[in-house]
Amino acid sequence: MSLPPLSHLQYAVLDILGHRELSGREVREALKSRKISKSGPAFYQLMSRMEDSKFIDGRYEEKIIQGQRIKERRYFMKGEGAKALAATVGFYAQKGESYGLL
């Protein structure tokens, strides 16, 4: 039996990102609102793996807060990520149809 290309966590991250560019903090807060809680380092490790898989890309953006420089990590979805997201949605839609759920 074939498997969907994304895990549930990867799917949630890509679904949150959509076509926007979001900071790591914003993605984490959105995950929390979906009741998916991950510690900070574990979350960034997940994002790093997704970057390795070419689903997303990240960059540092410099912000000045109280006269100090902060490097905020921002993420956006790549073409491979959009393809994987569509394939995952397609996979579950097909399964739903075969079980007569849709």
Binding site: G24, G40, P41, A42, Y44, Q45, M47, S48, K71
Partner: peptide, 10 residues
């Protein structure tokens, strides 16, 4: 990959 981005958040 994991510590520095979160440290910036902190």
């Amino acid at each position: 990959s994991a510590f520095n981005p979160y440290f910036e958040e902190l």
